[in-house]
């Protein structure tokens, strides 16, 4: 194992980068006593797609779940370091609910709520107590934004669970667009979908990146290569099974001219 200091990539040095939207500083994560993540430092550029890749157990999903503190649902977890979104530290913010509305999340499987398509999208606006006309407008805009409007406009009152898997995944994207988040987290959003539905979601990700900062975790290297502007490669340290950041850079660089030997092995399919 090569012993080296963890990488501290500087966004300004990267071609095509924008201002950092999320700044992750020396982040660590623990499930009970087990350390799952060590000293990750990373800057996520605004209105770009950033992919987190790496083999199972490397901590990429764990890292993603720190952006909106989803780990709060799991008892016995603890985070160290800082995750700054627009200057505010997510890990210690007292305004957690507000934060979660600024950071939307799309999960592996499209979980539609047991209610109509309209109510699914109106879920977060209702929590905020928006007026009816405002909610109606948000429902339409979000469904349009998620490229689902044309398919469901005539059946907004039917249950969301009646849609196909790909449609439901776009519904969950619409659901988080409804309150216009600044950052959208995607945790392997296509892993339960067929190739055509996957393609639609990837197209959508491209379009969403004009207005939103997107962070996507994926197992699928081709997908990362297709959708991401920037890619972070993570790996589990075999010594203590703790996840580390190995390399971060523009996707073309990471895939074609990786600086780290381990990245090269992974992207060329030699392991993982």
């Amino acid at each position: 194992m090569v012993e080296s200091a963890p990488p501290r990539p500087d966004l300004r040095a990267l071609p095509g980068a924008s201002e950092p939207k999320v700044e992750i500083e020396e982040v660590g994560f623990y499930y009970g006593k087990f350390q799952a993540l060590r000293e990750v430092t990373l800057q996520v550029p605004e209105k770009r797609v950033t992919a987190l890749i790496g083999p199972s157990g490397c901590g990429k999903s764990t890292l993603l779940r720190m952006f909106n503190r989803m780990y709060d649902l799991v008892p016995g977890t603890r985070a160290t370091g800082k995750v700054l979104i627009a200057g505010e530290n997510v890990l210690t913010t007292p305004r957690l609910l507000e934060l979660r509305q600024r950071v939307g999340m799309v999960f592996q499987r499209p979980y539609s709520f047991p209610m109509s398509i309209r109510d699914n999208v109106a879920f977060a606006p209702r929590l905020l107590g928006w007026t009816r006309p405002r909610i109606e407008a948000a429902v339409r805009e979000s469904l349009e934004g998620a490229a689902l409007w044309d398919e469901v406009k005539d059946r907004l009152d039917q249950p969301g669970t009646g849609l196909s898997g790909g449609q439901q995944q776009r519904l969950s994207i619409a659901r988080c667009l409804a309150v216009q988040p600044e950052v959208i987290l995607m945790d392997e959003p296509c892993s339960a979908l067929d190739p055509i539905a996957t393609l639609k979601i990837e197209d959508l990700i491209h379009r969403l990146a004009r207005d939103y900062t997107i962070v996507i975790v994926t197992h699928n290297l081709q997908q990362a290569a297709r959708v991401a502007d920037f890619t972070a490669f993570m790996l589990m340290n075999p010594a203590d099974r703790c996840g580390e950041l190995v390399e971060f850079g523009a996707t073309v660089e990471v895939f074609n001219r990786p600086r780290d030997r381990r990245t090269e092995d992974y992207v060329t399919g030699r392991f993982g």
Partner: peptide
Amino acid sequence: VPGGLREASVALGATWWE
């Protein structure tokens, strides 16, 4: 009830009660 439903709701900023 799938845990994912709970997560999806919490991720939208819903409280435990909501």
